[in-house]
């Protein structure tokens, strides 16, 4: 068992004719993902990576009974591409694109309140259920099948910590990269809720970072609603206030909100063990096995 994606998930790649879209469509298929079609306006009738391309997501989804999409569309058009996926309508849209204007994401966010579609991202590595399917750009060979539910705001940090877990034989049920932007679809609370309801997830790992209050809200949720044990990690303990650390969302405000300390304290108060190194995260996870 797993959450969000498995070997039954049928995927449309939005932007499959672009370099990234084509490359990762092939990589996803190689991993075993059911990529059934592509969607690019004006490119209908072509075939890319061995699958047919349609002008609209709706047609691609209808012809191939698809229920999910991955968005590799440039930032200027990505907000619209997400709306198209949501309206097609798909159950799951995974937006990889980095650099979408934040006001576009605010409009998407408003839309998501009224529909059942789950959005992962944007500016994220995607989601993977090891051995079954990956939707996104995650390097499949780092992951292994198991019972750790993994959720993170950062891509390469996910690979790092998952690698530490995999090397100890601690496989993953599903790993979700929720993205480093200020406004995202699925947040920590949404992901943790999925893991709590998944009988095959025995322990959850959440990797947060400085900025915003998502980790604090996650701590509250863990405290009130979770039986599944959770292990935490927070990046950015040494980040100075007022400096954006790469991700648009990763900034400690001048007034001192969004600090690693506040997040670690909140998680500790909710009974979450927080590792200070990737190895320590694996140590804590091992204890729950």
């Amino acid at each position: 068992m797993s959450v969000l994606v498995d070997d039954d998930t049928r995927v449309v790649v939005q932007g499959i004719t672009g370099g990234e879209g084509k490359f990762h469509a092939e990589q996803m298929m190689e991993y075993g993902t059911n990529v059934v079609a592509g969607a690019v306006p004006g490119k209908g009738g072509q075939a890319v990576a061995g699958v047919p391309v349609y002008d609209t997501v709706e047609r691609a989804a209808r012809e191939h009974d698809a229920d999910a999409s991955v968005v590799f569309v440039p930032p200027a058009f990505a907000g619209d591409a997400i709306f198209e996926g949501v309206d097609s309508p798909l159950d799951l849209v995974v937006a990889i694109t980095e650099g979408i204007p934040v006001q576009d994401m605010s409009l998407v966010n408003e839309k998501l309140n009224d529909v059942d579609t789950t959005l992962i991202g944007p500016n994220c590595p995607g989601v993977i259920t090891p051995g079954e399917a990956k939707l996104g750009i995650l390097p499949g060979n780092v992951f292994s099948s198991g019972s750790v539910g993994f959720v993170s705001r950062s891509g390469t940090l996910t690979y790092q910590i998952v690698d530490n877990l995999t090397n100890r034989g601690l496989g993953q049920s599903t790993a979700i990269g929720i993205g480093g932007d200020p406004i995202i679809g699925t947040d920590f609370v949404d992901a943790l809720r999925l893991f709590e309801a998944d009988p095959d997830t025995e322990v959850a790992v959440m990797c947060g970072e400085i900025g915003g209050e998502d980790e604090e809200q996650a701590a509250e949720f863990i405290d009130e609603h979770m039986e599944t044990p959770v292990v935490g990690f927070i990046a950015g303990r040494t980040a100075p206030p007022g400096k954006r650390m790469g991700h648009a969302g990763a900034i400690v405000s001048e007034a001192g909100t969004g600090t690693a300390e506040s997040k670690i304290d909140a998680l500790n108060d909710a009974g979450v063990h927080v590792g200070y190194t990737p190895e320590e995260v694996a140590d804590h996870v091992e204890k729950y096995r």
Partner: peptide, 14 residues
Amino acid sequence: GAGLVMTTLDLVDH
């Protein structure tokens, strides 16, 4: 990657 670089900073400090 921002998260991994931040983590590397934190480990240097650690």
